[in-house]
């Protein structure tokens, strides 16, 4: 199948952050993906979106692409580090079953956003993906562009403890990194967010998000009331179990995601020890796996 891969001309001005997203939407939309909206819960990675986790289960074909805001409280740096943020965006593509030309499709998407593979060094470097909290793993690579990891490329083998039948291909683009790359910027905060129009201000990523980073870092690391967080964790766990008892996999899964994020925040507050950490992760994994099991049952899929 010939792919309409509109290669971005090398003399074109680099894409703004928002145009990068729109270009990827257009590209994957043209390749048959449903373009979804972000999941409206706090989560640490796009893989947690039900469009990835739950849809990776079962036999039905599924092709989707979406942006997922990610929150990683421990990665926050008060907006002082040019390369790290506590909240950022991933671009997720999931194709099930994984098409035979997935690598070519992916490289086509890089060409579409203006990366010339004869000028830049694109490499597939082994990186097996595992999410202990989701009971999931897959084989694949981190894709390097001139030494920078720009995408995680994974063939899911298991999700929620179940073999993937069939296997999905998952692409996770780090949007800020890609944008820094194509815009040749040294700081995330300096990224051009929009394409300025006459009479309208040019916005940088920092204009929009710097204050969020500062305040959220302060809250995550210093202010968040840990008793409240522990309480939230317990309540999310209890509610997840309540949902599972009522055979409601999606609400159960949402509660598992909430518990996971509360746990991440507790980690940023530095109140979880190494050993406790394992126990908390096991707890979240059990919830997520429980939700996956309920989802399999609900759909009548055999393990």
């Amino acid at each position: 199948m010939p792919h309409p891969a509109p290669k971005r001309p090398s003399d074109a001005p680099p894409l703004s952050f928002q145009d990068l997203i729109l270009t990827l939407h257009a590209y994957w939309g043209a390749h048959g993906c449903a373009i979804l909206q972000p999941y409206d819960l706090e989560m640490g990675a796009g893989t947690f979106h039900t469009a990835t986790t739950l849809r990776a289960l079962g036999p039905d074909p599924w092709n989707a692409a979406f942006v997922q805001p990610c929150r990683r409280p421990t990665d926050g740096r008060y907006g002082e580090n040019p390369n790290r943020l506590g909240a950022y965006y991933q671009y997720q593509v999931i194709l099930k079953p994984s098409p035979p030309d997935l690598q070519a499709l992916y490289i086509g998407s890089l060409a579409a956003i203006g990366i010339d593979p004869l000028k830049h060094d694109i490499r597939f470097v082994e990186d097996d993906w595992e999410s202990p909290t989701l009971g999931a793993w897959g084989l694949g690579w981190e894709v390097w562009c001139d030494g920078m990891e720009v995408t995680q490329f994974t063939y899911f083998q298991q999700m929620g403890g179940y073999d993937c039948k069939p296997v999905s291909g998952e692409l996770t683009y780090g949007l800020e990194r890609l944008a820094m790359y194509i815009q040749d910027k040294d700081s995330i905060l300096d990224l051009a967010y929009n394409t300025p129009q006459p009479g309208m201000p040019a916005l940088t990523y920092g204009d929009i998000f710097l204050e969020n980073e500062k305040q959220m870092s302060k809250w995550n690391f210093e202010v968040a009331d840990t008793d409240t967080l522990f309480d939230l964790f317990r309540k999310a766990v209890a509610e997840c179990e309540n949902c599972l008892a009522h055979k409601l996999p999606i609400p159960a899964y949402e509660q598992a995601i909430k518990a996971s994020h509360v746990f991440n925040t507790l980690q940023a507050r530095g109140v979880i020890s190494v050993q406790e950490r394992a126990a908390y992760m096991a707890r979240v994994r059990d919830l997520a796996k429980g939700a996956c099991t309920a989802w399999m049952d609900h759909n009548g899929w055999a393990a």
């Binding site: 036999p59 079953p97 994984s98 098409p99 035979p100 097996d128 897959g138 084989l139 063939y155 083998q157 993937c164 039948k165 069939p166 296997v167 291909g169």
Partner: peptide, 10 residues
Amino acid sequence: KSMRWGAAST
């Protein structure tokens, strides 16, 4: 480590 892939992996 080995893997399955594609349509056959049902």
